[in-house]
Design a protein around this nucleic acid. Structure first.
Lengths: 197, 197
DNA sequence: CGTATACGAGACACACTGTATCGGAAACGT
DNA sequence: ACGTTTCCGATACAGTGTGTCTCGTATACG
């Protein structure tokens, strides 16, 4: 008797898939990414090992899917935050702060789980990972361009480079101990974006 | 007949150890970290598998040792750069630029090798990795404090937080395509460090 | 020159992998 | 409602990596 059974078969597959991703993330956080095995994942998820292979071909694919799901949820949150403000400058600040808080919370919430960015290097194809993360980069890049159109952005560096700068700099939030420190980080990052006097 | 044999036995062990680290880094870059095995490492290094186990207990330990060696060489280079200048501000700028170039070169030189920071999350004990990376953090932190003493640093954020900011922001160099872009990145990062007007 | 150390090779039990097959149970479509 | 399709858990299997051990040999050490 399968643990979770939904009305529709498609919904069931989605639930099982999500459960696999959750289990894998938990195992990776507990014992390290390198020691996670398909057997463990199947057992802890409560499904047969052969069934697991019908969802994913190997551990790497699962980690990749987990990373994609993380990025997607981040994107959704960031879009919400962005659409709550009208002014370009306000939008940028709100989104950057939200991005920083996401990374801050992840590390405080789970024990010392890896960021997506860090996980990226594990997988063989950085390119594919980059594709997911690049959606976030695009969003920030567009926000920066909007600010530039308002004349409130430095013009000696192209917006897409500034976006790369922002994303990496804000990853520092994962190391910081307090929300106050994260707030200061966002302030520092924003400082560098203003037009040269 | 062992491939490399040195006069002293201790030098020999160091050479073998380094060869193991080189091989492992190469394999990880070629086929992804997750697929690296002790058997492969032994074969490609040209030593017996049992011998490999006398140097390292598992793949994770080798990756950790490789990471430590990387950080140590970075620290050495950064210290050289630092000691070539006298003025605190000049020192900071030179070291930050060198740090950025290290990360830039690594990604351009090898195909898409992982940064240390990214590799860190793979291993179970982030704490130990953090210890190695923290030496770099300390160096930057000291440089920032020296600049602060000269009155050329913003005083609304403590130097150790600014150091965290710098290190993460400069990691963006690994994504940038050209040396010119890296130069602009360093400029941007430095912008945020100046005293509030 | 005797001793201690490091080595390669091989053997071993164990775990994980990837694939295949099977009968049963649930959803699907008419 | 009922036949069909789809998914599932269990089991089996060969192939590979793991971690440990022993043994005979070669080298450095004192």
């Amino acid at each position: 008797m399968p643990r979770l059974w939904s009305e529709t078969i498609d919904a069931h597959r989605r639930e099982v898939r999500d459960a696999i991703l959750d289990t894998t993330a938990r195992l990776a956080a507990e014992h390290g990414v390198l020691s996670v095995t398909m057997s463990q994942i199947a057992e802890r998820t409560g499904i047969g090992r052969a069934t697991l292979y019908k969802y994913f071909p190997d551990v790497e694919a699962i980690l990749f899917a987990w990373h994609e799901r993380q990025i997607a949820s981040h994107l959704e949150l960031l879009a919400q935050v962005r659409d709550q403000a009208d002014d370009a400058g306000t939008r940028l600040e709100a989104v950057l702060k939200a991005y920083a808080m996401i990374h801050h919370q992840r590390v405080r919430h789970h024990q010392h789980k890896h960021h997506g960015a860090e996980l990226a290097s594990f997988l063989h194809q950085d390119k594919h990972i980059a594709a997911a993360q690049q959606q976030v980069h695009s969003m920030i890049s567009e926000l920066l361009t909007a600010v530039a159109d308002a004349g409130d952005l430095r013009d000696d560096v192209p917006p897409h480079e500034l976006a790369t700068y922002c994303l990496h700099a804000l990853d520092a939030a994962s190391t910081l101990p307090s929300k106050a420190a994260v707030g200061r980080l966002v302030t520092v990052v924003l400082t560098a974006l203003r037009p040269r006097p």
